[in-house]
Design a protein around this nucleic acid. Structure first.
Lengths: 221, 221
DNA sequence: AATGACCTGACAATTGGCTGACATGGATCA
DNA sequence: TGATCCATGTCAGCCAATTGTCAGGTCATT
């Protein structure tokens, strides 16, 4: 699972990141509010760990802005300022949980598991484009009602494409979100993957924008 | 909304109860673990506020027993003992949130709102999927009316799967909820368990989603 | 027509999951 | 105490699905 860690103190960030990595998460770290907001708004993370004491935009403001933009990923707030008023603010701003510093890494992991577990399957769950329907809860894809079996990678690709339909997605962006890493550009794995998906779901779902990337057109209601 | 408040100190209990009442909840108060367990097991509450330091049965034990009996109401744990290890235990025992004493009433209310909001839309004691019926009160499973004996672990697995049918459940999530802990990932115990359950309940109940986990499909009414 | 971007089919290495057999350890009972 | 049973974990081998790679192809743009 891919996580966004928002923490400005390098040492703390590094500690947390390595613990999370050891627990099997893919972690991206950012250090200021602006950047955090942008990432959280444009990328898909399984959860966000958000420090409140940030340079740039304040953590709570970032969170509120995500929520009002319809971004519902689970958010765990982290802060040294442990006043009760702030905890209330955090929870009412849409945080899923709240962890005062200092804390044990075990507790961070437990709470993270907990919020991820809780929010699994709260996402709006069914997306469609053209003849294709994607049910994110069941991880099922169907074409005109006929269910189609997809491999894990194929599914991740389709899910990402459909969630961001109506936008041109660069190969780099897809690489990053389908595989966990940036790109190895001496491989055409992604192109092959696209091909496989087209073979299963039909050639019309994914349009190629030569030189730019791929596009799943928005279906007019 | 009807709440169960489990707290042995009369003054604290009275304070909380009146604050909750003022906020519009209907509150029932009990003072010891045994009684708490019995009430929580037989009555339906919108949420439970559970103190851990109890005479009679320990709060955590009460919670675990509820959960293993399939009682899913949201539970907010309350305790003076604020060690991190205990918080982890509480969350892993199935608590929805955790509030260390002392706290402000506002924070209690905020957290309560939060867990109630999150768990909206759960509960009922008989679940079915396909030919399988699970009665959580009696901890009984039957296939087309024929009761099937399951071992404790098998039961926990089936109960968790059925409660969350219609969603793909990762091996990690199952590990966490069937065994009490995160995983020893060099063991295929879960796979073996799945196999055993399939042998008893038939091969069609649990679908494998290679690379993602398992799914008990929702039965269309 | 040249260029570079993209597509495709084949192939092999790897992985993930299933199964049967066995080991362990606790409970029960004579 | 010892015999036995049951629940559960471990292990090794098996099989099939998955996926990266590569070697050409095709296509749009200049």
């Amino acid at each position: 699972m891919r996580l966004l860690l928002v923490e400005d103190e390098r040492r703390i960030a590094a500690d947390i990141a390595s613990a999370l990595a050891a627990a099997g998460y893919v972690v991206e770290t950012v250090r200021d509010g602006e950047e955090a907001w942008f990432r959280g708004d444009t990328e898909d993370y399984g959860a966000v760990i958000l420090d409140l004491g940030l340079p740039g935009m304040d953590g709570l403001a970032v969170l509120k802005r995500w929520r009002s933009n319809g971004r519902h990923m689970p958010v765990l707030i982290l802060t040294a300022r442990a006043s009760w008023a702030e905890r209330v603010d955090g929870i009412d701003a849409g945080a899923d949980d709240y962890l005062p510093k200092p804390f044990r890494m075990e507790e961070l992991l437990a709470r993270l598991r907990s919020i991820v577990r809780r929010t699994a399957g709260h996402s709006s769950s069914v997306v469609s484009a053209g003849d294709i329907m994607l049910d994110e809860r069941q991880m099922k894809v169907s074409v005109r009602g006929v269910p189609i079996a997809l491999s894990p990678l194929e599914y991740r690709l389709v899910a990402y494409l459909l969630r961001h339909r109506g936008r041109v997605l660069s190969q780099h962006e897809l690489d990053e979100n389908v595989y966990g890493h940036g790109e190895d550009h001496d491989s055409n794995a992604l192109e092959v993957l696209i091909g496989r998906v087209r073979k299963k779901l039909g050639p019309d779902l994914i349009e190629t924008r030569r030189g730019f990337g791929y596009l799943v057109p928005e279906t007019p209601a």
